[in-house]
Design a protein around this nucleic acid. Structure first.
Lengths: 187, 187
DNA sequence: GTCTATAATTTGATAGAC
DNA sequence: GTCTATCAAATTATAGAC
C-alpha cells in the first residue's frame, strides 16, 4: 500500500515534525530521528538523503494536508464564517491542546538559515493559506480582493502571534485573548 | 570605563544577538562569535563560560534596554496613545527596516530547547512588557486591568505575528496590514 | 584577556555487507 | 530496507602558557 500511514517514511516524517515544532531546524539530528523511530541513522538517510530533503518533505506534507482539508472557498453552500472558525479552531487545537508551535511558524522563524528547498515549500504554504483566507474573507464581507487579503493577513498574524504568546507565557488563555477582537468583529 | 560600548563583552553580545535573531539558539557556535569579533573561541568562553550564560546575558541586556527606554506609564504628562505608537514604531524599525525577527520572538520559538537560565530571562521580559502595555492601555481606554491586559495581549500577539509574516513572505507591507485594524481602533 | 592545544561529543553523510 | 562501521567536520568546553 503506497498510502500506508505506518510505514517507515511516515514514521520518520512524524518524528521530524515533532522535533521541528519543538525547537526548529537545528534542534534535532538524524540520530534523534533514528532513535525515536527505532532504526539507525543510516536508514533515515536511505529514505531522506539529506536534512534538506527530509524537512522539505515534512513541510510539503503539511501543505498537502491543509490543501486537502480546506473546503472550497467558492462553494456557495458553505458558510464563510464557519470556514474561518474551523480554520481558527484547527490552529488552536495544535497550539493550545498539543502545546506546540505550528510547523509553519517555527520554520518561518528559522528562514534565514533554512536550505533553499525548504524555503520553497514554506512559500508554497503561505501562498495556499493566504489565497484561501483571502477568498473566504472576500465572501464573508462582500469585499474586494485587497480588503480580503488585508483581513487574511491580520488573521494569520494574529494566529502566529497567539502561538508565540502561548509558548512564551505558558498561559493558553492568551490564544483567545489575542483572537477575541478579531472574532467579535468578523465572526 | 565599565559602560564602554566597544569592549569585548559588548561586541560578543552584539554578535550573539545578531546570530540569534537570524536563526535561533542552535544556529550559531562560539567559533562563529569568535570569528565575527576577531578573537578565538576560548576567549569567548572566558567572558561567558557557557552558551546558556551568553544567551542569558543577551536576553537580560535586551530586557534592560527596554526597561530604560519605556516611559513611565503613570506619568500624566505623557499621552498614552503616543507611548503605544512609539512602542509599535520601535518594533517596526527592527522587523521591517533591519529585516530581523525580534530577539524575544525568536527565543520564544526555541523555548522548549532553551536552558532554564534563558527561560527565566525570557519570562522577565514578558512580565515587563505585558505590565507596561497593560498600564498604558488602562489609561488609554480608562479601562480595568483585565481589559488593559487583554489589549496588551492583542497588541503583543499582533507584533509577534507581524514579524513572522514579514519574515515568511518577504513583504514588509504585511507589518502595517497586520497592525491596521488595531491602530484604527485604539490609536 | 587572549592565545594554542586539545578533549569529548555530536553532527550530516557515505560505503558496503546482509 | 536496514545494518555496522566509519568519516570529516563541527560543537561545547577546559587546561595551561603568555
Amino acid at each position: 500500500m503506497t498510502t500506508d500511514k505506518n510505514d517507515t517514511k511516515t514514521k520518520i516524517m512524524d518524528t521530524a515534525e515533532g522535533f521541528i515544532v519543538q525547537g526548529g531546524y537545528n534542534a534535532f539530528s538524524f540520530r534523534d530521528i533514528a532513535d525515536a523511530v527505532g532504526i539507525k541513522s543510516a536508514s533515515v538517510h536511505y529514505h531522506y538523503p539529506t536534512k534538506a530533503d527530509l524537512v522539505s518533505a515534512v513541510m510539503a506534507r503539511y501543505t498537502e494536508s491543509f490543501s486537502i482539508q480546506l473546503p472550497d472557498p467558492t462553494d456557495e453552500s458553505l458558510d464563510p464564517k464557519i470556514m474561518i472558525n474551523g480554520f481558527i479552531d484547527g490552529f488552536k487545537a495544535k497550539i493550545v491542546d498539543q502545546r506546540d508551535m505550528s510547523l509553519c511558524t517555527m520554520l518561518t522563524s528559522n528562514k534565514p538559515i533554512l536550505p533553499e528547498a525548504v524555503c520553497v515549500e514554506l512559500a508554497a504554504f503561505y501562498q495556499l493559506i493566504l489565497d484561501w483566507l483571502t477568498q473566504v474573507f472576500m465572501r464573508l464581507n462582500e469585499a474586494t480582493e485587497k480588503i480580503g487579503f488585508m483581513q487574511a493577513s491580520q488573521l494569520l498574524a494574529c494566529l502566529h502571534g497567539a502561538s508565540i504568546l502561548v509558548q512564551g507565557t505558558n498561559q493558553p488563555d492568551f490564544f483567545d485573548h489575542a483572537l477575541s477582537d478579531f472574532r467579535s468583529r468578523y465572526l
